[in-house]
Each structure stands twice: as C-alpha cells, then as structure tokens.
Design a protein around this nucleic acid. Structure first.
Length: 531
RNA sequence: GGUCCAUUCGUCUAGGGGUUAGGACGUCAGGUUUUCAUCCUGGUAACAGGGGUUCGAAUCCCCUAUGGACUACCA
C-alpha cells in the first residue's frame, strides 16, 4: 500500500527530475536562439553543427530557432552564399522559425536591412559616455600599432593607454566631432573600454571566464561606411530580437568580454552564452577549413559549393550521404547523451540534447566514422528510399529497369556499401553481363574439368528446374550428391560466369533474378571466354 | 609576442575521490557465409609531464609542456 501522496522517486525519474529543474530555470523567458552566419562563402560542417546545436536546443526547450544573416561587411559579400546557407540548412532539416525568407515579427533578418537602427544605438553609447567618435587615418592607426609593439606594451591597439594621443572626440569634445561629421569627414565610433575592470562572464559550457579590461581595446562599433561592426550589430540584434541564449563557435570567446561590456553599457539584460568547441582537421592541426576536405579526401561542406571563380568544393549530399546520417554524425562530434547509443533519429536528438553535455575540447573530424554512420542509415532506411536514390544512379548509367527489380537489387546489395552510388559497383552484373573475368580467381579455382561440370549443370539442373532460388539450391545439391561432385568448383565456376568475380550476393538469388535464359547465356559465354 | 580556452586508446567519447578506466570507429585474429561483403566473438590500444591536497586521485589545486582560438573600420 502506498501511503505517500506520490510515488517515491525511482532512479530513472531522478534524471527526469534534474531535467525538470533545469527547465524551471528556463521558464519565464521563452527560449529563442539564433544562427547568425555571414554570407561570405559556404557554410562548412562546423557551421552546420553550430546551427544544429542551436536548433536542437530550441527544440528541446520548446523555443524558437531563427536564422539571421550578418552581412555588415559589404566587401566580403559573396554571391550565392546566403542561398547556399538556406539550402544547406534545408537539406539537413534544420528549419528556422524565422528567417530572411520566411520573415517573422522580429524582422528584418538581414543586418543590411536593419542598417538604420544601429546608428541610434551607437549614438546612445556616445551620449552615455561609453563610446566616442574617432577620425584616425589608416596610416595613423598603423603607426600607433607599430609604436605600441616597439614599446612591448601589453595591449598593442587603440586603448585606454593611448586614446588621448589620437584624433578623437575624447580629445577635442563631442561638438567639434559632430561638426567634422557634418562636414562629411570619415569617422568611426569606438567603444570606450574602461581601464581597469574585471569583467566576468558566464559560459554554459566553460563556466566563469574572467578578463581584465586593461587587456581589451577600444573596438570599432560603427564603421566609416555607415555599417555597424559585428560587435554592435550582434548585441543590438540579439537584444531586440529577444534572444535568450547565444550558442556560437569558440572563436568568439575572446570577444565575449566586449559583448558583456556592451550589454552593461546599454543597461540590457544579457542572454546566456555557450561557446562551442571547434571542429579540427583530421590531422589535428588547426581548425577545419575550406580546402581541407578535398585535400584530405572528404567533403567539408554539406552540399556542393560552386565558388564564383569557378572552383567547386564537394558536398556531403553529392557524395551520397543521407541527411539523417550526416546530422547524426555531426551531432555526436562534441556532444553525447551519456549513454552508449550512437544512432539517433532527429526526434531523439531534439529530446536528448543538452548544452551541459557539450564537450569543452575541440573534436577532430573522422571521415571513416562518417562512412560508418552512412552505412547504418543505408541499412536502416526504408528500402523504398534507397531504391529511389538508386534509380537515379541507374539513369546515370543509362539503365532503365522496373522499380521492383531495382528494389530487389538494393535489398541484396545495400549491406555491402556505404553509399547508394556504390550499389552500382556491387550490382552492375545484374544489368550488364560481365565484360571480363577475374584472372586471379580463374588461376586458382577454374579447373580443367570445370567446363564439363558446368555443361552438366545446364543439362541436368538449369533446364529442369524452375528459376527460383529456393528450388535451384536443393536441385543443384541433389545433382552434386547423386553424381558425387563437390559443390565448390561448380559454385565458383557459376559465379565467375554470372558476376565475373568471386564476390557478390547469394548466387542462387542472382540466378533467379537473371532468369534461365540469361543464366545459360552467361555460362555459354563464360565457357568460351574463360581459359 | 600578448590574452583566453583546451588536454582519457590512432579518432569520437563515458567517467564528478575508491572502476579489471567502459563503449563506438579503425585495426588485428577467429567464426558464420563453400565467394566477397555484412554479421558474431575475441584481441590491440588511453588518463600529456611534474608537483601538491587526500587514507586514496583520470577525477580537486598549482606549475610545465603541447595544441587551439583570438589579437581588422572580417564575421
């Protein structure tokens, strides 16, 4: 009898309870996360993983995942990059709730289209004394850098220790600066970094990070071309879009203190931050980059990328990866649920994902394991889907067959491949008679009496048995037993005639599919050609 | 150079003071398949180093080493 008003917690429910506690801390504010790439080129798998983790985090907490395009650098704009990003995410099944395409109530979602709003925020910081106008020429900046380097100063850039020696409004006042601005002079707006403050920032993955502002510089917030820099735009947008969690790559960790200072200067509540570890090259030297893939023999991009200059970079999609396999693989590169499960559906990932199980250290990408994942999915996927993909492969080889036949071929061969396109290599003999025969096998296994044996099989088995794998096998066995012939040589001989090699699926299944006429024809051809 | 971050089998990782340091990929061996592949079974292989703290450290602290990121009017 249970006298408690509720059942006592069992071990599994303790886990749920902990999840529940974490959820409570997330309640009250809706989870809103963003993936914010800049359209300066294709998205590689590191970027896709960042997008995926954001997406999964949103799903896990019933929040929104949004896509924002950070195109504040007009010089680095690359034609087609944004389209590529959208297409890649789509292929991966990472669908944003709000995006430049679909819109949303926090739009626009392209920073270039939000241009007007940034200046007022920069002005706000000037008014509150947290930012200032600067008119320094590139030459002056370069001279400053050199000088500070020579002095071996701890901070070699524009900062508290030297800003009063430069050409800015801290030196000659705001009014003077505004006059110069009105006169059309080029200017930037810089953040006035306090001199000696300890900035503390909490990271969901790394814990507390502390930096002294003396080591930080006066970053440009607003550029002379009228656009904000990433730092300003990012903070303003995350705030105005009600972003609750900023999940981004580790390369942003060094600018976290700046961003924290910006939130403080604006007097805004900060989102929570999580900096993801980087994806490393397979040899472990440095972060994965654009050219690594094709150099090392695997794709780094989700889908094929055509550079405006004509260069082509291979993609997972074109290489024959299934999107689910790809997602599964990258999800596990830096995260795991703590169990020994390795294959996860999208839904499972959405249920299980949690930031606190993301690793701190960078992960090297392993192309071999990527293939294994794909194999798992080729095996577990519905035969229809595999057949569908294989039909397309067949077209490339100018083969047209009944879908039913292709499905049988897939069923027989998919366990031996990592990719759908490899099915062709494993199954071409189903569609075309072998053009040649494996010499090694002939040398070893094709005996003097093999032709004689095969003729006997044609006469006594082929001609007399219905072409069904379940009937052919016992028929051949009976024949061999009755005449005291070993099965081995016959099987190898037949296989050589059918396939051209000593490999492939069950021989009887092959013969059933080929049909009596074709089988006999191939034996005849083999008898002529194999010596 | 400076700042920050990281470090468990070759690779991805489990591990929150007491474990024969577990799993997966790869690799090797055996078995199944009269082929090849799949599959099964087994083997291989790791706490970067040095100091602490502790009865006891892979686990906590410090130093060193190594690796990485950042150090633009790029994101």
């Amino acid at each position: 009898m249970n006298i408690l008003p509720f059942s006592p917690p069992k071990l599994p429910s303790l886990v749920h309870f902990l999840h529940f506690c974490r959820n409570i801390s997330l309640m009250g504010e809706k989870v809103r996360v963003r993936f914010a790439p800049s359209p300066t080129g294709p998205l590689h798998i590191g970027g896709v993983r960042t997008a995926l983790y954001n997406y999964l985090f949103a799903k896990r907490h019933g929040g929104d995942f949004i896509l924002r395009i950070e195109d504040t650098d007009q010089n680095r704009f690359v034609e087609g990059a944004e389209k590529y990003i959208v297409e890649s995410l789509k292929w991966c099944g990472i669908m944003p709730a709000e995006s430049p395409e679909s819109g949303g109530k926090y739009g626009p979602y392209r920073q270039s289209e939000r241009k007007e709003m940034y200046r007022q925020y920069a002005d706000q910081l000037i008014k509150s004394g947290n930012a200032y106008y600067a008119f320094d020429t590139p030459e002056a900046l370069e001279a400053l850098r050199k000088k500070m380097e020579e002095e071996k100063a701890p901070n070699t850039s524009y900062c508290a220790s030297n800003r009063l020696t430069m050409d800015n409004s801290l030196v000659f006042g705001i009014e003077e600066a505004e006059k110069r601005v009105a006169a059309g002079e080029n200017f930037v707006i810089r953040f006035k970094m306090p001199d000696n403050n300890q900035v503390e920032a909490d990271d969901l993955i790394r814990g507390r990070v502390t930096v002294n502002t003396a080591l930080l510089d006066d970053k440009v917030l607003f550029k002379s071309d009228g656009m904000p820099t990433y730092h300003l735009a990012n903070v303003v947008d995350d705030h105005t879009m009600d972003i609750s969690h900023v999940i981004r790559g580790e390369e942003w960790l060094p600018s976290l203190p700046l961003h924290v200072m910006l939130y403080k200067a604006f007097g805004w509540e900060m989102p929570q931050f999580a900096h993801l570890p980087l994806l490393l090259k397979p040899d472990g030297k440095g972060k994965l980059s654009k050219r690594d893939g094709d150099k090392m023999g695997f794709p780094v991009f989700p889908v094929e990328w055509h550079n405006p200059d004509g260069e082509v970079y291979s993609g997972y999609r074109e290489s024959g990866y299934l999107p689910q396999a790809f997602i599964n693989m990258i999800a596990l590169l830096g995260w795991n649920p703590g169990t020994e499960q390795e294959i996860f559906s999208r839904e499972e990932l959405s249920e299980l994902f949690s930031i606190d199980r993301v690793n701190k250290a960078g992960a090297r990408f392993d192309p071999e394991k990527a293939k294994w994942f794909n194999h798992q999915y080729i095996m577990s996927q519905g035969l229809d889907d595999v057949t569908e993909a294989f039909m397309i492969e067949l077209q490339k080889h100018n083969i047209s067959v009944l879908r039913e036949f292709a499905a049988k071929v897939c069923d027989l061969t998919r366990e031996r491949v990592n990719f759908v396109h490899e099915i062709w290599q494993q199954s071409a003999f189903f569609f075309v008679a072998p053009a040649g025969y494996d010499q090694e096998v002939i040398k070893k296994r094709w005996k003097e009496n093999t032709p004689e044996l095969l003729r006997g099989v044609i006469e006594n088995v082929m001609q007399k048995t219905r072409f069904d794998a379940f009937l052919l096998k016992p028929a051949l066995e009976d024949y061999c037993n009755n005449n005291q012939i070993g099965m081995g040589p016959i099987m190898i001989g037949l296989r050589l005639c059918m396939v051209g090699a000593a490999s492939g699926p069950d021989l009887f299944a092959i013969m059933e599919m080929l049909g009596k006429e074709e089988v006999i024809q191939r034996i005849e051809t083999g008898l002529q050609k194999i010596k």
